[in-house]
Design a protein around this nucleic acid. Structure first.
Lengths: 183, 183
DNA sequence: ATATTATATTCAACAAGTTGAATATAACTT
DNA sequence: AAGTTATATTCAACTTGTTGAATATAATAT
């Protein structure tokens, strides 16, 4: 029920289509919120019914028509209301398919487990690179669109993801060493 | 669809009721998997229908009857099959209500934001303590039940949670400083 | 004495998220 | 010239997760 607030937040920057929102998600909220296209389109439909957003069809020269959404006054109020009320419990519900398997690692071979932890490490290293790239492109994008004030907060959140990812890579290194000494 | 494998994994240690499983979850898988009681009971029901677990009613002296579940051969096979097949993509779908609000922080007062980041820091410090306690009690529990081999892997996973939590606390400290200098 | 917490489970209703198919065109690559 | 990728959206079916009510007793705290 709060994908909608992510969408409203992004529509505060500028009007966008479902597709644009998906793309924007991918280069920003991706690391704190995940959403599939189908979910975004459905949610936008609901939000329009509830008067939080308005859509208008925009004709494009050569491409298809776009359905461009804009935030309404009601939408702005709803967003602000949500924003100011942080949840009491800031723990996140985790569902980590990888680490659960490590937890039950006694039923796996050391070889297999080392292989998977190495794969995990590689993926997090890629994430680290992606985050660095995002930080740079976000800076440029913000400068172009006059969103420097927004960029300040984007940076705070990317810093968090960077630190967490670094910690995970550290853990992976130590764990690989540990497992290799044991096996 | 993989809460079931967490349950099967725990039933490998010993037979348990839905309630026991919930409790065991809370002192172990909690930091990698979250599940409400109602979900556990429902999943156990399904699993019994599918022949992955068996239940028998156990009479207790003064308390209620307990429905104690045990893993079947089919259950063991299903668990092993799941365990050996790690997902290709090891990223986790995140849904972080806190950090999304920081992302949109320009619509909040610095005062409010600082308050919330401090609250976040405090909660993570509590988590850190809880993790340390869990590590100790798990060690004792493992020793008592002859699960020392299992404990080795539990420790690996708790280490990961510890490192991540420490990184989050670090981030919170830096961010509080940064926000206080700006405001 | 009374209230609360812990034990122990079930179930219905609802909300949210995932998968996959369907449709249609422009732009780019081989 | 043919194939792939990107653009752009909709929808149905399904799985998963959340909330809250209902039931019933022992143990502990006030």
């Amino acid at each position: 029920m709060s994908l909608r607030y992510g969408l409203l937040g992004l529509l505060n920057y500028y009007d966008m289509s479902g597709y644009d929102l998906k793309k924007t998600f991918e280069s920003s909220l991706q690391y704190m919120w995940s959403a599939k296209s189908s979910q975004i389109y459905r949610e936008l439909g609901k939000m329009e019914k509830e008067g939080l957003v308005l859509s208008k069809i925009e004709q494009q020269e050569k491409k298809f028509d776009k359905k461009v959404y804009s935030i309404t006054k009601l939408g702005i109020t709803a967003f602000q209301e949500w924003l100011e009320h942080f949840p009491k419990n800031l723990e996140l519900p985790i569902r980590d398919e990888f680490i659960v398997r490590v937890f039950f690692g006694e039923h796996l071979s050391f070889e297999n487990l080392i292989f998977e932890v190495k794969r995990f490490k590689k993926q997090r290293e890629d994430t680290l690179e992606a985050l660095t790239t995002i930080l740079i492109t976000a800076k440029h994008a913000a400068a172009e669109d006059g969103l420097d004030k927004s960029y300040y907060f984007w940076k705070l959140t990317i810093n968090k993801a960077l630190k967490e990812t670094q910690a995970e890579i550290e853990w992976a290194k130590e764990t690989i060493d540990e497992l290799m000494n044991r096996s």
